[in-house]
Design a protein around this nucleic acid. Sequence first.
DNA 1: ACCTGAACACCGTTCAAGT
DNA 2: ACCTGAACACCGTTCAAGT
Lengths: 219, 219
Amino acid sequence: MSRTRNPRGQGDQLREDLLDATEALLAELEDERRVTIRAIVERVGVTPPSLYLHFPDKAALIRAVVARRFATLAAATQSAAGPLEAAGDPAAALRAGCRAYLDWARDNPGSYRVLFEIQRDTELERPDGTTGSEAFDQLARRIAGCQQARMADPAADAGDLAAVVWAGLHGIATLTVLRKRFPWPPIEQMLDRLLTGIVGLPPVGAATTGEPITEGPVS
Amino acid sequence: MSRTRNPRGQGDQLREDLLDATEALLAELEDERRVTIRAIVERVGVTPPSLYLHFPDKAALIRAVVARRFATLAAATQSAAGPLEAAGDPAAALRAGCRAYLDWARDNPGSYRVLFEIQRDTELERPDGTTGSEAFDQLARRIAGCQQARMADPAADAGDLAAVVWAGLHGIATLTVLRKRFPWPPIEQMLDRLLTGIVGLPPVGAATTGEPITEGPVS
DNA sequence: ACCTGAACACCGTTCAAGT
DNA sequence: ACCTGAACACCGTTCAAGT
């Protein structure tokens, strides 16, 4: 089809192009099964065997874009919550980070699925079994920050709390997109129940009367 | 291959056999993508086109086994928690039901994935958008039972609480099998945090030690 | 009425060959 | 050194045909 490419010079550009095309297709199709090798290479303007010069198989390609997407997820939560050792309100920072996680999952459903719902065929996570744990480490440390500020249950282990909060966030992120027609409470309300009930954060604002809070200035 | 079947008389037996074979393969392979039409029909002893006499396509077949599996999940939680209007301790019943949900997910990973992680291509959930909501209705009603027994936050809507608890259960169920090497706290501890923190249940076995359970050395 | 053989358009992957 | 043409073994699905 498109024979326009096939440039000259040193390779490695193709590798980047393949990753970009895979990311773009994942965003468009929202389903890894439809992100097919033949669609990827066609978008780059190359034939299927060329892909195998850069990746041993499709799983390796997917793993490479997974690594990229993990980095952008961590960056999204980080930038929403601010630097870890900032001086501000640690509870507000934790809230903002969690909110950013849920927003990112909603806005990047294809990526979220491939990050957290696809069984890695080879259990080829990192040796320590914590692929993409940057976001989790952030969560645990922000919870610890709240504990130090006496805004969270001080008796519990921050990592244990983070595990339950992560599970709750993941459940909200996946189920709300899977069951769109289910009568979900507002996301903000569910997040608040998680953070007050599990972590022990003080309720947001003064009144938690179930009013759907739109977009609060979080800083 | 296996020509042994092809019996006589009225059909419809083949339909049941196909459903049984699909369920069995799903349990063995733990991954819907590997549950292939050709594997299903081979197990039954029939050729691929025969399947299309009973199901319009593969998605319809999967939907039919999904309906079956939803029923067995609801039966598992129901039988663990006891009848809804039983006289006993409603908090214990709620706990038992949640525990059964997590156990079932752990023991039936292939089924759980196909029930709760596969995007239904056609948004062909029930008209009310609540496919498989029997288990959810049960959960909400048991939480309401705890509220009436003054063992749960009486101010919140039982359905809202149930949504967050379900999200937490789903997150625990899926993430613990996806990230097997992650240093998870004991399932029992995470469930307890969910039920005490979100629903407002009294802590389990409150009297004796009062010490939060700490895990052993994580090697 | 119930089932099969043979084919179609796809998929991931491989290999010999082109420049 | 980098890429392609052609093929292989799979997949879901269809259709004419067998009994």
